[in-house]
Simulated scan of single mutants.
Amino acid sequence: MAIPDFVVALRAKVGHVPLPLSGVIAVVLDDQDRVLLVRRSDSGEWALTTGCLEPGEQPAAGAVREVWEEAGVEVVVERLLSVEALDLSVAPNGDQVYWLTVGVRCRLLRGEAAASDDESIEVGWFDPAMVPPLPPHQQRCLSLALADADPWIAGLRDDATGSARAPVQLH
């Protein structure tokens, strides 16, 4: 996977310790409401288009860039889907990351989807009912995109009941 230059520079100073990084998850739909998936080169698994935001990059711009880099199609961001801090992830090289992810729904503008960088080995359009298994946070983004639901913000509502949580008290 291509590691952004700013992360390479940080890793040269801090090694493999956990870094907080921000990323995007793009749910791309075409005019038939099929969803674009990429087959990741590192795991061989199908996934939504995801990526690391560059310093100062807005999530919508990052989503458009990532979809272009990984699938070679132009999209427009339609709306926010989710905001969520993920559990610690560890890359095969030992790098540790706490991702803060912003999920967005995108609509295809133009282009023929094709694997266009070293991060994806295959791309395809899937009927939402036929999507291969996705990580839980990606499945949640897909479900929110298809349901036209309000954005989901982790910790704002009780995940099991949907009821509002008590306000957090700081002492």
Rank of each mutant, 00 (worst) to 15 (best):
residue 89 S to K: 01
residue 97 V to T: 14
residue 99 W to V: 15
residue 86 L to R: 04
residue 82 S to R: 10
residue 114 A to I: 06
residue 85 A to D: 05
residue 98 Y to V: 04
residue 113 A to S: 00
residue 92 P to A: 13
residue 86 L to A: 07
residue 111 G to W: 04
residue 103 G to S: 10
residue 89 S to A: 12
residue 105 R to V: 12
residue 95 D to E: 14
residue 125 W to C: 03
residue 112 E to T: 11
residue 116 S to P: 00
residue 116 S to Q: 12
residue 96 Q to T: 01
residue 88 L to Q: 08
residue 101 T to D: 02
residue 116 S to L: 06
residue 110 R to N: 08
residue 83 V to A: 01
residue 111 G to M: 00
residue 82 S to K: 07
residue 106 C to V: 13
residue 94 G to A: 12
residue 91 A to L: 14
residue 106 C to D: 08
residue 82 S to C: 05
residue 83 V to Q: 08
residue 115 A to S: 12
residue 98 Y to F: 11
residue 109 L to V: 13
residue 86 L to Y: 10
residue 92 P to V: 13
residue 112 E to K: 06
residue 88 L to F: 08
residue 93 N to S: 15
residue 80 L to N: 11
residue 102 V to P: 01
residue 118 D to H: 15
residue 80 L to S: 10
residue 106 C to W: 04
residue 83 V to D: 00
residue 83 V to N: 01
residue 121 I to N: 07
residue 89 S to T: 09
residue 122 E to N: 10
residue 82 S to Y: 06
residue 96 Q to M: 04
residue 87 D to G: 15
residue 84 E to S: 05
residue 90 V to W: 00
residue 117 D to R: 09
residue 94 G to L: 04
residue 121 I to S: 06
residue 80 L to Q: 13
residue 88 L to I: 04
residue 113 A to M: 01
residue 93 N to K: 05
residue 94 G to S: 12
residue 88 L to D: 13
residue 98 Y to D: 01
residue 88 L to V: 08
residue 109 L to S: 07
residue 114 A to E: 11
residue 96 Q to E: 11
residue 93 N to C: 14
residue 99 W to S: 06
residue 112 E to V: 14
residue 105 R to N: 09
residue 125 W to P: 03
residue 126 F to E: 03
residue 111 G to E: 00
residue 125 W to R: 02
residue 86 L to M: 09
residue 93 N to M: 13
residue 117 D to Y: 02
residue 80 L to P: 07
residue 124 G to D: 00
residue 108 L to N: 02
residue 111 G to P: 02
residue 116 S to F: 01
residue 104 V to L: 14
residue 124 G to K: 05
